[in-house]
């Protein structure tokens, strides 16, 4: 009886593992095999000369350039907003907040971490509507609103990585600077944050990966299928994940579909690279921690 249970467990575990990996490899394989041929010189810039496109002298209509530029602008803006807020919040939660205040704040950030991204996008849209009523005709769904909403979406990742890293600094290191007369803020700035740098960098990269791939937030707050390179913070824009979603339902010809697969492959590669980098940094941090 015991023996049969052991055998069953091993069979079940092997089957489950193989099935899961086979399923993921199937999906990834489809993207790689059908996307690979599309990685041609014209993929990004189409028929336009790359230099003309980069200098914004000419619009690219049949390439991924506008979507990539949109995603780049979006992620850069998102992180500019999210990193300072995430750092400040993580530092405050780890080093200052105590008791009930801390419990309430971490409950709120746990809720935020669990919220569906479409709900965060919806909140961004709600903000747009309010702003639209205040400044009629000036503000609609746009790059800035998307970045605000995305920053909010990735905030918990940043807060958590900063907070966890700070809270795991060993006590000997933590007391060194105060014993020499440093005040709390100086200790944080000069000793604790430098000691946590790899983990914080890992958290930031994780957040970038999350911001690059998110589709639900941006489809509610300003991403569109055709807008060209983003011209201003208050303009609509194209983005790589939205482009992939759009192509899946709306492709007109095999060429467009091919470009969709190639775009999916590019996005997949970016996210995997980000994840590997984040893992590596986190591991380096925990190794350095050991005495």
């Amino acid at each position: 009886m015991r023996k049969a249970l052991a055998g069953l467990t091993i069979a079940f575990s092997s089957a489950a593992t193989l099935l899961l990996f086979a399923a993921v490899l199937l999906f990834v394989g489809v993207i790689v095999f059908r996307g690979w041929p599309g990685l041609a010189p014209g993929l990004i810039f189409g028929d336009t000369r790359p230099l003309d496109a980069l200098l914004l002298r000419r619009q690219v209509f049949d390439g991924l350039f506008p979507a990539m530029a949109g995603t780049l602008a979006l992620v850069a803006l998102t992180m500019t907003l999210a990193v300072p807020a995430g750092l400040a919040t993580g530092i405050y939660l780890a080093e200052y907040a105590r008791g009930r205040g801390k419990a309430l704040l971490s409950l709120l950030f746990d809720i935020l971490a669990g919220l569906p991204s479409i709900v965060v996008g919806l909140a961004g849209l709600a903000l747009t509507i309010v702003l639209h009523r205040l400044f009629p005709g000036r503000i609609g769904p746009c790059l800035l609103i998307s970045a605000l909403a995305l920053a909010f979406l990735v905030l918990p990742y940043l807060v958590r990585s900063v907070q966890l890293a700070l809270e795991s600094v060993p006590r000997t290191l933590r007391l060194t600077a105060p014993a020499l007369g440093a005040d709390k803020l100086t200790t944080i700035r000069a000793v604790l944050l430098p000691a946590c740098l790899p983990e914080i960098a890992g958290g930031i990269i994780l957040a970038v990966g999350r911001a690059i791939e998110d589709t639900a937030v941006i489809m509610l707050t300003g991403a569109v299928a055709s807008a060209g390179v983003p011209r201003s913070l208050l303009a609509q824009y194209e983005a790589l994940p939205f482009y992939i979603y759009y192509i899946s339902g709306q492709y007109a010809d095999p060429e467009e579909l091919q470009r969709g697969f190639a775009a999916a492959l590019l996005l997949l590669a970016m996210c995997v690279v980000m994840l590997v980098a984040a893992q590596w940094l986190a591991r380096r941090g925990s190794l350095r921690r050991q005495p």
């Binding site: 993207i31 979603y245 899946s248 996005l267």
Partner: peptide, 11 residues
């Protein structure tokens, strides 16, 4: 866990 959702959907 790092594979974008939209990629799964697309594939």
């Amino acid at each position: 866990s790092g594979i974008p959702t939209v990629i799964y959907g697309f594939a």
